[in-house]
Computed example of a mutant assay.
Amino acid sequence: MTHTLDIPLPAAAAATAGDKASALPVSIPPLRPPPYRRALPSYLSGRHSSSKCGRGRCLCSALLAVLLFVVVFLLLLGICFDPRAPAFFVEHLELRRVAANSADLGLALLLVNPSSRVLLRYSHGGSVAVSFRGGRLGSGDLPAFLQRPRNATKIAVAVRGRGARAAAAAVVSGKKGKGDVALRIHVRAPVQFGLGRLDLVKATVVVDYTVVVHGFIPGKEVDIKSTEHTRKIEF
């Protein structure tokens, strides 16, 4: 025979069997997830600025490398090849003839190549012009020739002028005879610098002279008292 007894359950067990949420203490608040904030790594936050700095450094390095190459190349060029600009000197000047509308002069120039290895190729198109008191006495052409290193070559230039102004200026200077005359001589010479058969650079040498002569008489050699000149090179 079985006997069944109704024994009341404790309050805790009854609460567990029922609604579990209602059994939680009222004083404990419900749990919430903590706020989530993602902090970017330092290498990501500075990525944009570092890329700009990297490009700037590369550009500066490239410019410095090019500049260094140019400087070294010029130094090697100066040490190995010894390129120098030619020098011109007025050696002789003569007023040969004065006519009604022309004046002829004889001019001798000494061309010096001071370089020890670089040769000079004078091309066509070089000219010499002589003026007096703002009027041109005449002009002539420089010959084309090849000048070796460490060489001095004297060339003769026939200077001829036409026009009443040039002839009048020459006649006036010739009548003075014993006085000092200041002439202007303008030389323009296209030159090709070369090393053997290799052409290095092409330039034009421009020289302006102020030549003071004594006794500018037709048919007689002129006594050159002093010369001053300025030189420039056009590339």
Rank of each mutant, 00 (worst) to 15 (best):
V171M: 13
S173Q: 11
G219Q: 00
Y122T: 01
V201E: 11
S115W: 08
V205K: 08
L24W: 07
V171G: 09
V98F: 07
K20P: 12
A39W: 08
P33D: 07
L198S: 11
G138N: 02
L74V: 12
V130I: 12
P25L: 11
G163I: 09
S50D: 09
N151M: 06
V70G: 13
G135K: 07
S116V: 08
S49Y: 00
D208T: 01
V201P: 05
I79C: 09
I217Y: 02
R32A: 05
R55T: 10
N151Y: 06
F132G: 05
R148K: 15
H92T: 13
V212G: 05
C53E: 00
R162Y: 04
G219H: 00
V222Y: 00
G177Q: 12
L31I: 06
R162Q: 04
L119H: 14
L77I: 12
V213A: 15
P218K: 00
G18F: 02
R38W: 01
R162H: 03
V112Y: 10
V128Y: 11
C60T: 04
K176V: 08
V128C: 15
R136V: 13
P33E: 07
I233L: 11
R133C: 06
A23T: 08
R160P: 02
S22F: 05
L5M: 04
A166R: 03
G18M: 04
A203G: 00
R150L: 15
L142D: 08
A158L: 10
P86V: 03
H229W: 10
L105F: 06
V26C: 06
L68W: 09
R84D: 12
S42T: 12
F235G: 10
A85M: 11
H124E: 10
A108Q: 13
Q147H: 08
S27E: 15
H3L: 03
V211H: 12
L110W: 03
P83V: 14
A13E: 15
R57I: 05
A21L: 10
A23K: 06
A164M: 10
P25R: 12
F235L: 09
D19A: 03
P34C: 02
D104M: 05
G135L: 09
Y43I: 01
L111C: 12
I185D: 09
A17R: 10
K232L: 13
V191R: 06
V66D: 01
D180M: 00
R160M: 10
S102Q: 05
P35C: 00
V72E: 12
R84K: 15
T16W: 04
A203E: 04
P41I: 03
L93R: 07
F216P: 01
A11H: 02
D6T: 00
H92V: 07
D82P: 05
G194H: 08
Y36P: 04
V201I: 12
G138F: 03
A203V: 05
L67G: 15
V26S: 15
A164L: 14
P29H: 14
R37A: 14
L183W: 08
E94W: 02
